[in-house]
């Protein structure tokens, strides 16, 4: 029973971190049809900035998160303007190559600037230790990650379903040309969602730094996981991404706990099985 509970908590925390990072990727992929392999690199940049701010400058954790989110968006804007703009609507191979190129560059630069060692984001005392839930104590940080994931999911749901911007966003996802013809400024919708996606990636990178340690190869190591989440969940679908994250987080964590030697093995087998059964993702709609 104890094992089952600790697996469940860890899986939930891991799944939520995955969700925070990959939901931005899912939305931009559904919206702009860009296979963005560099998304993990933005999460990594967020982790590095937070680590620098909190550990080397000694700033507060909350402040470090804000700095990481806005810093990463600032770094991403010129990249979007100069590079991503040119691959909207291009064939997948082109997009894959361009974004892998960006990822390699960011890894190389991160390694040059910060060195190959692991970077930690020191937690504030409030998030250290554990919380007693009555029947079981769990690490506060895990709880924090889960709450962050829930908050992001709720906020996104509200923004997309209830606000005027959400209406424009959904219209652009469904049919960009028609939305533009009806007066939606699609470039602004694109730019805002790209910025939000990158910001969420950075946020997830910082919050999840305990689970996914920040190091130069972060971008390459977890790239696959993020892509898997999006493709299993179906691009552009929030419930799909949430479901996929919980499912994959559960499979991965369970595998690691029960069969540490074959953990990865089951994860990838599950991925292949899910995609073969649902080629368009769990919540994918029947369109390319």
């Amino acid at each position: 029973m104890q094992t089952v509970l600790s697996i469940a908590i860890d899986a939930l925390a891991y799944g939520m971190v995955l969700f925070v990072i990959s939901i931005g990727l899912s939305v931009t992929m559904g919206l702009m049809r860009v296979v963005n392999l560099a998304h993990g690199a933005f999460a990594m940049i967020g982790g590095y900035i937070a680590s620098y701010a909190a550990r080397d400058l000694g700033l507060a954790y909350g402040f470090a998160i804000v700095l990481a989110v806005f810093g990463t968006i600032l770094i991403a804007i010129p990249i979007e303007r100069l590079l991503y703009r040119r691959i909207y609507g291009a064939p997948e191979l082109t997009q894959v190559l361009m974004t892998i190129g960006i990822t390699f560059c960011i890894i190389g630069i991160a390694n040059y600037v910060f060195g190959p060692t692991l970077k930690t984001v020191p937690l504030p005392p409030q998030l250290q230790g554990s919380v007693d839930l009555g029947f079981r104590a769990i690490a506060t940080h895990r709880l924090f990650a889960i709450l962050c994931g829930l908050a992001v999911a709720l906020a996104l749901w509200y923004a997309i379903e209830k606000t005027a911007f959400g209406v424009k966003l959904r219209a652009s996802v469904d049919n960009a040309a028609m939305a533009a013809a009806l007066g939606v400024r699609t470039e602004i919708v694109y730019a805002v969602s790209f910025a939000v996606a990158v910001g969420l990636a950075a946020f997830g990178g910082v919050v999840g730094a305990e689970l996914l340690p920040v190091e130069p190869y972060y971008a390459l190591r977890y790239m696959v996981t993020f892509l898997v989440v999006v493709s299993v969940g179906g691009a552009g679908s929030i419930p799909g991404a949430l479901l996929a994250c919980l499912l994959l987080g559960g499979i991965d964590t369970t595998g690691r706990y029960l069969m540490p030697e074959f953990g990865e093995f089951f994860f990838y087998l599950a991925v292949i099985a899910i995609i073969c059964v649902f080629p368009r993702g769990l919540a994918g709609r029947a369109k390319g």
Binding site: V224, L227, V230, S231, V271, I272, R280
Partner: peptide, 9 residues
């Protein structure tokens, strides 16, 4: 994208 992910997996 699913094709790409399958190949990576």
């Amino acid at each position: 994208l699913p094709q790409l992910v399958l190949s990576i997996a």
